[in-house]
Amino acid sequence: MSTKQTIAIIGATGNMGSGIAKSLSKSNNRLLLFAQHEDKVQALVDDIKKNNPSAEAEAIACPINASWEADIIILAVPYPAEKEIAAKIKDVANQKIVISISNPLNETYSGLITASDTSAGEELQKLLPNSKVIKAFNTVFASDFATPVIAGQQADAFIAGSDAGALQTVAELVQTAGFNPIIAGDLAVSRTLENMTVLLIQLTMKYNYNWVAGWKVLHN
């Protein structure tokens, strides 16, 4: 990416959070990493710097401080935790890009717990009315970050949001992470993207894709 961004990753030590952090650390961005267990965050920072000594990554003890310093905030937390985090960061996330990666799955992975006329992305936007909420990284698996090229094809990663500038910025981030970004539409398209992940999980379990699987739009 050309412009250096400060990116806060809340929930940085989870499978998705650490995958995103490691991928984005290859760029010239500054990463502020937060999770419940500080020792795990520090271990992640050490791991990132071992692989890339020039990477700018630091452990931050408080999600509010991390978000206050950041240009972009990535909520790498499960859907039920988004509400609590949103309440904490609401004031410091004003006019900032907030990325929703969650899929509001039910316990059996047979569907979503959100109503059909909304999505995790849209619910987060309601909680953060003055932020630019973008849906991204929810259609890829955590292990895809290490393997974004699957069976010779670069996995597509879909993005939805209602702010054109924010979409472009996030598309560049998705590219930095190794995926082919596809801007799918406004934030309401999150409903489709979240359902796509339900299907991908079901297919992965049924056909044993080993959790390295993704979507690819073939076109001429």
Rank of each mutant, 00 (worst) to 15 (best):
M1K: 07
T3Q: 13
I9N: 07
G11N: 12
N15V: 01
S18N: 11
A21K: 01
A21V: 11
S23P: 07
K26I: 11
S27Q: 06
N28V: 06
L31M: 08
L31W: 11
L33C: 08
F34V: 13
F34G: 08
A35N: 06
A35Y: 10
Q36M: 00
H37D: 14
E38C: 00
V41G: 12
D47Q: 15
D47V: 04
D47T: 13
I48A: 04
K49V: 09
K49W: 08
N51G: 15
S54V: 15
A55G: 05
A57W: 07
E58K: 14
I60N: 03
A61F: 11
C62E: 14
I64G: 01
N65G: 09
E69C: 13
I72W: 02
L75N: 09
P78T: 03
P78M: 10
P80E: 08
A81Y: 10
E82P: 02
E84R: 04
E84M: 01
I85V: 14
A87H: 05
K88H: 07
I89M: 08
I89P: 03
I89Y: 04
K90P: 09
K90H: 14
D91E: 15
K96M: 07
I97L: 06
I99V: 13
S100W: 02
I101C: 11
I101M: 07
E107N: 12
G111C: 01
I113M: 14
T114M: 03
A115D: 14
D117F: 02
A120Q: 00
G121F: 06
K126R: 15
L127A: 11
L128R: 01
N130R: 06
K135S: 14
K135Y: 06
K135I: 05
K135G: 09
N138Y: 00
T139Q: 00
T139W: 02
F141C: 03
F141D: 00
S143T: 12
D144E: 10
A146I: 11
V149A: 12
A151Y: 03
G152D: 13
G152T: 07
D156T: 10
A157F: 00
A160V: 03
A160P: 01
S162Y: 03
D163H: 15
A164K: 10
Q168T: 13
Q168L: 12
Q168G: 12
V170M: 11
V170W: 04
Q175W: 04
T176V: 15
N180E: 08
I182Q: 12
I183W: 06
I183D: 13
I183R: 10
G185I: 03
L187D: 07
R191D: 07
E194P: 06
N195W: 00
M196P: 00
V198C: 04
M205I: 02
M205N: 13
Y207W: 08
N208A: 13
N210L: 09
N210Y: 01
V212M: 02
A213V: 12
W215Q: 09
V217H: 11
H219L: 14
